[in-house]
Amino acid sequence: MEIKRKLGMALATTALGAMLIGGGTFALFTSTASNEGNTFTAGTLTIEDVTGGAAFSQSLYFDNLAPGDSENATLTIRNTGSLDAFVKISGVTTSGALFEGDYPLSFSYDGATVVIPAGGTETFEISYSFPLEAGNEYQGATGTADINVQAVQVRNNDANNDGEPDSWN
C-alpha cells in the first residue's frame, strides 16, 4: 500500500517537471511510454496445528494421573502462509479442579521464538507435572488445558536481526 502511493507521488512529480520544461518551447516531437499492468499481492501469514489432536493424547497417564506424574508432548505447527513467521507458545489456558488448589497440574515449556519459513514445520515441546504432594482431594479431578501458539511476520519485523520480532502484532 505504501509502496504504491510512493510510486504514484514520484510519477506525479516527474509529470509536473515535464510540463514546466515544455512551457518554454514551441513544438517538439514528443512521446510517452506507459508501463502497464503492474500487480501487487499481499502475502499471508497463517499457522496450522498439525499435531493430530490433543498434544497429550498420546501420553500414558493424561487420563489416569497419579501424583508425581510428568510427561512430555510435542506440538507440531506448520506455516501454511506465504510469509516466514515468528512462532512461539504464548501460554496455556487452563480450567478445572485439576488446575486448582495447592498442588495443581502445571505445564512447562520453552517460550523461545522460532522462525518457521513459509511452508515449513516446527515442533514445540511441552510437559506437564503433577506434584507428588497432591493429596486425595485431587483423586478423579479433571481439567482442560489449551496450549496457545502465536505467530507474526518475520520480514520487516526484526530490526536487530536478533531472531526476535520487534512486535508480535
Binding site: 500500500m1 502511493r5 481439567g143 496457545n148 507474526v152 520487516n156 502484532n169
Partner: peptide
C-alpha cells in the same frame, strides 16, 4: 501525506491457534 498514513502502519500480519487437552487424575 505520510503522517496521515503512518497512524495506521504498526499492524503486522499475525496469527494464533490453540491445542486443547483434557486431563484427569486417577483414583486409589
Amino acid at each position: 501525506f505520510v503522517l496521515a498514513v503512518g497512524a495506521g502502519t504498526f499492524a503486522l500480519f499475525s496469527g494464533t491457534l490453540s491445542n486443547a487437552n483434557r486431563f484427569q487424575a486417577g483414583t486409589v
